[in-house]
């Protein structure tokens, strides 16, 4: 396959950027999208040009490091991570646009690399259960109904890639934040911090500059792990409950 790529190039934070066109050939359908970029980068290096910077690590769809907007869609046309997108989804001669996540709370670091540390700070504001090492009771001391365990797991699957934010017209982090709130608030172990957790995390989310939610639903459509949209409603419910009970 021969492809025309239009890639966002930006040398650093706050620097001006532009779409730059490249031709790549010798692409086969079995390649992943990132392996296709590897081919481009190898050529750029030999030509003495700066290769395209992008985040990636596990390349099996679980670490959440990779992520780019491909032809206008977060992670591209398939509902998966960029590393698990394969070139068989494209045709010979295609032109493909490749851009970084675009959101006010995710400033561009270089080319396709963005700064997602805001996510870490949201987790630090309550996305945990306080259980210092050594203090745990026996694992079977508190049974967890299978249904609750399944709901918790379904939400805990979030890989923190940021596709939800990139896909949202408002740059909102509601799906990411609600996944952790629902994961932990569903479990009996998470109950004691139920209120402080949702208040803290939503407060941090707002402080980081993420937009509000207008129920566009783009986040759940783009999410490679299928975090359910109703988690946002569940978080709103938790938030209202906690806000009502919180001392004014």
């Amino acid at each position: 396959m021969r492809l025309t790529l239009r890639v966002w190039r930006q040398t650093g934070p706050g620097e001006p950027g532009a779409m730059t066109e490249y031709q790549v050939s010798g692409i086969v359908p079995e390649m992943s999208f990132l392996e296709m970029l590897d081919v481009l980068n190898e050529e750029l290096i030999l030509r003495g040009e700066d290769p395209v910077a992008f985040d990636h690590d596990c390349r099996e769809g679980i670490c959440g490091a990779c992520g780019m907007v491909i032809n206008g869609q977060a992670h591209g046309p398939e509902r998966t991570t960029t590393c698990q997108l394969h070139m068989r989804e494209f045709g010979d001669g295609d032109t493909i646009d490749v851009e970084p996540w675009r959101a006010a709370a995710f400033p561009v670091v270089k080319d396709l690399v963005v700064d997602r540390s805001a996510f870490d700070r949201i987790i630090g504001a309550g996305g945990y259960i306080t259980a210092p090492t050594g203090s745990a009771p026996d694992a079977h001391a508190v049974p967890v109904p299978k249904e609750a365990a399944e709901t918790a797991f379904e939400n805990a699957e979030c890989i923190g890639c940021g596709a939800c934010v990139a896909a949202c017209p408002n740059g909102s982090a509601m799906l990411f934040t609600s996944a952790k709130v629902v994961h932990l608030n569903t479990l009996p172990q998470g109950a004691p911090e139920r209120e402080s957790r949702v208040l803290g995390m939503v407060g941090a989310m707002d402080a980081e500059g993420f937009g509000g939610c207008t129920n566009a639903g783009e986040c759940a459509t783009a999410c490679p792990k299928g975090i359910p949209l109703p988690s946002i409603a569940a978080m709103n419910r938790e938030y209202l409950r906690a806000a009502r009970r919180a001392p004014r």
Binding site: A131, D138, H140, P143, P145, K146, Q189
Partner: peptide
């Protein structure tokens, strides 16, 4: 054995049986 206890306390959603046990 302590590790499993610790992880459950942290909210790690291990697979469970219908009775709620691991």
């Amino acid at each position: 054995v302590e590790i499993i206890d610790q992880c459950v306390a942290q909210g790690v959603p291990f697979a469970r049986e219908y009775g709620g046990l691991l």
